[in-house]
Simulated scan of single mutants.
Amino acid sequence: MEHGGRLRLAEQCRVVVDNDWAGDPDGLVALAHHLLSPTNRVVAVTSSFLNPVFGPLGSTAERGSALARELVDLVGGPSRPPVYTGAEGPFDGTSTSAASAAIVAEARRDDDLPLFLVCAGPLTNVAAALQEAPDITGRLTLVWVGGARAAGAAEYNRDTDPAAAELVLARPELAIRQFPLETYRRCAYSVAELERDLAGSGRVGRWLWTRFLELPLPDWIRLGGVWPLGDSPPVLVTALDDESSTWTEAAGGTRRVYTDVDTRLLFGDMLARLRLHESRQARGGGGTGRDG
Rank of each mutant, 00 (worst) to 15 (best):
L130P: 02
L74D: 03
A148R: 06
E2K: 15
R203W: 05
G230Q: 05
G202I: 08
T96S: 08
P82N: 03
Y184K: 13
P25E: 05
D111M: 01
L50G: 05
S97D: 02
A129G: 00
R196C: 10
L117C: 09
P172I: 11
G292L: 15
G285C: 14
D73V: 09
R158G: 06
A175D: 10
E70Y: 06
L35D: 00
E193N: 13
G4E: 11
F91S: 04
L229P: 01
R69Y: 04
P134Q: 06
D161K: 07
R139C: 04
D231C: 14
L7R: 15
L9W: 05
R290F: 00
R186C: 13
W21K: 01
L266D: 01
I221L: 14
A10W: 12
R8N: 12
D242V: 08
V29W: 08
R185D: 11
V235I: 11
P81V: 04
L174Y: 10
D161Q: 07
A107S: 07
D262G: 06
R14C: 00
S59K: 09
E62G: 05
P90Y: 10
A188E: 13
S279I: 12
A148V: 03
S65E: 07
Y258R: 08
L229Q: 06
A272W: 13
A151F: 13
A66V: 12
V226Q: 09
E132R: 14
A99R: 03
R109D: 09
L9F: 09
E88T: 05
R171G: 11
G252W: 09
A133G: 02
W144V: 04
T96Y: 07
L36F: 05
G152K: 06
E166H: 12
L74S: 02
E132L: 15
V226L: 04
R283C: 14
A32V: 00
D24F: 14
A153W: 12
A128W: 09
R177I: 11
A66I: 11
R80V: 00
A164T: 04
V261C: 10
R186I: 11
L223C: 10
R108Y: 11
R196N: 13
T238V: 03
P56F: 06
R273A: 13
T238W: 07
A129T: 05
P25C: 02
F116R: 12
V43H: 06
P162K: 09
D24M: 13
D159Q: 05
L169I: 13
H3F: 15
L117V: 10
S47G: 00
E132K: 14
E195A: 12
Q131P: 05
V53S: 15
H33E: 10
D135Q: 07
A99T: 00
E132V: 08
V261E: 10
V126F: 07
E278I: 10
E62T: 10
R108H: 11
P233T: 04
D26S: 14
T141D: 05
V191Q: 12
L265N: 09
T160C: 03
F91W: 15
D242P: 04
A87N: 12
A98V: 01
L35Y: 02
L123D: 05
T124P: 03
A44P: 01
A61D: 01
H3M: 15
T259C: 03
A66E: 15
G284V: 03
R139I: 01
P180S: 06
L213W: 03
G93V: 06
L208A: 01
P172M: 09
L266R: 03
G146Y: 04
V235D: 07
V42Q: 06
F267L: 06
L240A: 07
V257T: 13
G224P: 00
D219N: 12
L223H: 11
V53A: 14
